[in-house]
Design a protein around this nucleic acid. Sequence first.
DNA 1: GATGAATGAGAATTCATTCAT
DNA 2: AATGAATGAATTCTCATTCAT
Lengths: 218, 218, 218, 218
Amino acid sequence: MPKPTFLNLPPDKRRRFVDAALNEFALHDYRAASVGRIVDAVGIAKGSVYQYFDGKLDLYRYLVDLAAETKFRHIDAARAGDAPDFFSQVRQAAFHGARFDFGEPRHASLLYHATYEPSTPETLEVSSRLRAASHAYLRGLVDAGIARGDLRPDLDRDMTVYVIYQQIVALRDFLTDRFGFSFQDAVHAGAGLPIREEELGAVLDELIAVLRHGLAPG
Amino acid sequence: MPKPTFLNLPPDKRRRFVDAALNEFALHDYRAASVGRIVDAVGIAKGSVYQYFDGKLDLYRYLVDLAAETKFRHIDAARAGDAPDFFSQVRQAAFHGARFDFGEPRHASLLYHATYEPSTPETLEVSSRLRAASHAYLRGLVDAGIARGDLRPDLDRDMTVYVIYQQIVALRDFLTDRFGFSFQDAVHAGAGLPIREEELGAVLDELIAVLRHGLAPG
Amino acid sequence: MPKPTFLNLPPDKRRRFVDAALNEFALHDYRAASVGRIVDAVGIAKGSVYQYFDGKLDLYRYLVDLAAETKFRHIDAARAGDAPDFFSQVRQAAFHGARFDFGEPRHASLLYHATYEPSTPETLEVSSRLRAASHAYLRGLVDAGIARGDLRPDLDRDMTVYVIYQQIVALRDFLTDRFGFSFQDAVHAGAGLPIREEELGAVLDELIAVLRHGLAPG
Amino acid sequence: MPKPTFLNLPPDKRRRFVDAALNEFALHDYRAASVGRIVDAVGIAKGSVYQYFDGKLDLYRYLVDLAAETKFRHIDAARAGDAPDFFSQVRQAAFHGARFDFGEPRHASLLYHATYEPSTPETLEVSSRLRAASHAYLRGLVDAGIARGDLRPDLDRDMTVYVIYQQIVALRDFLTDRFGFSFQDAVHAGAGLPIREEELGAVLDELIAVLRHGLAPG
DNA sequence: GATGAATGAGAATTCATTCAT
DNA sequence: AATGAATGAATTCTCATTCAT
């Protein structure tokens, strides 16, 4: 948890700090990220970081939570009217999630790192919490989908969640490959990635079609 | 690439070295892995590593390639008669792949790390090559499957490969969750993980069913 | 020396500050004591300490002097009628000193630290002054004791002072060992240490007997 | 415990390292001692210290043990024929101990620091072991002394040990005061302290006389 | 008088790599 | 070919003190 000192910071300074930290943790995983590089980028003293946070881990936790919340909020906000069925819901979430990722490559990279962080005792809790949140979200959709009859009732629900979760997370890899993107480059450049929404939509349509055939009744 | 020095080593010594290195890179990702711990475990001088390999990265490359080849060979060898159709082929590959992972948790962990290694300039090439190999393998199956009529002819082949690849990779997470395994613990214990083949088969059946519904024609 | 700012403080606030500082310097020696922990405990700003005192050293000096004076005053006050001879006087002082220590473990710990503070240039003066005060007090008793004939007239007075001083200071170690006390724990608990006065008296009787045999004439 | 690396060092280099470390820990207590200053003094890389020892604490432990052993050995070696009675034994030990201290002020200062080290969890074990060794040594003398009839049979043995231990330790303070010495200065100057043996003997005679009167029968 | 954010030197420790033996 | 001591830059973190508000 950030210390009050951090919360009392002038908004601009706080923003610049978060920016630099986000950059660092987007470019490197937890262990490789360097507090020194962050302070150099912001132009503050090393000690200041420890006035703001309890330490590197605390800062990391804050950023992961922040990025996750921001992304979830973005997805929720973009939901134009409730989608009528399970697959539309998943498509919508994946679509807006991907749009967010391309618009905010640093958040996306950070979350990607956090998801696959090698499970050291230190970072385990952060990764687990992140994964648990996504799973819980999907589990809700799956349960409702089965109740509504959108999904075969005999499905192994845990496995279904896994199947969908992986596809959505992996979408990132597929899209970067297909369109020749690189999140790393985008982070370095400090810009979002260009994506034509129709192309993204087309890819998603195909993916959702596979899932629909695979999981829907009949 | 290993230096000649390494290849001229007495087989036993070479084996012990590979063993220890495998252990280290199974327990830690590239950056966290320690050359010092390896030489301590083998009981050789630190300098020797640099007589055998060009450096940590070179050693890492060698191990990832070795593990990938070993796993592929195991899967190929276990193929009892050619499976008749695409989905049986995938099932067979996934089944034997999983059995390999549970039997050789160090290889499995190493490959998992390599797959999700944060893409620093250093390790990027290794990860890419690993992923490319798996994709190429699956691509062959998919192309043949479409030709044979096992898969819908209008499928986006790249995406199909991605979908299947992700599911197979995700299997690991799902199984460890479901059965309460931990690859880390298995590596520490120096033992394989117990898995009843019927249970693995049941999970795979369900997963393959989803893929079949999703990807097969009509 | 405290600045006027400190002396003008509302008594309650001043008391709370002294309390917290006492705690800190009782739990840690000079170098390890932390200004930050003190202000956290009191709930004031870090800068305030520097409005009250010239710095950490100045605060330390103030506390040591305060604790020493308090202890001396306690011993003086507890003197019920003048003890008739040298050894009774020493016994009385040691007895009431020990009682003070057990009742005020923070003062006791602070003084203990100050006594054995590694003699850096910084703290040398504080430690010296503390020791000098005790020595001067004992020197008075010794001089009078020799004049009165309680002590052998040919004693080296300085050495006699040293002998007695050490015994009394070390009494703390002996008592904590014998009774399983810990001043650190008492400070943490914020409570005094339990001691039955008869037990303390018995120990002192034995110690004084040794001194009497050792130092008295004939 | 020193690592083999340290023990394999060329004697001269090892000596220079121990010298510098001894200096540092003689001038500062454990916490204030700086690994950086040591390596600067020796002219080696910081990392080397960690090739030699497990860390600062390990180095400290080694030095304290070394100094204690050296001092004990010196005292034992100097014992010219077994002293006939308890008080002669104590006198002899104190005499040679003091001579050692004045000749090796760095050892003496280090041991003094270790004896009064503020009891943090880290250094507690080192201090305790040091004190325990001295007490055990004295306890042996006391037990034998009582058996031999040199000491009053009804003495509290623990307390007797304490009394004597304190006097011997305090001797250092007394002598420095009386002769205007400073161990710190001697360490800085890199020289031993001058002491005339007759003077030391005279002081000890007086101290032992007090102890004899205090503790001997009749 | 009080605040508390900023400082920055200094602390211990790690570790891949080199190179003289 | 093997050794293993030496390196030194990089790491995270601490903390007394200052000073603008």
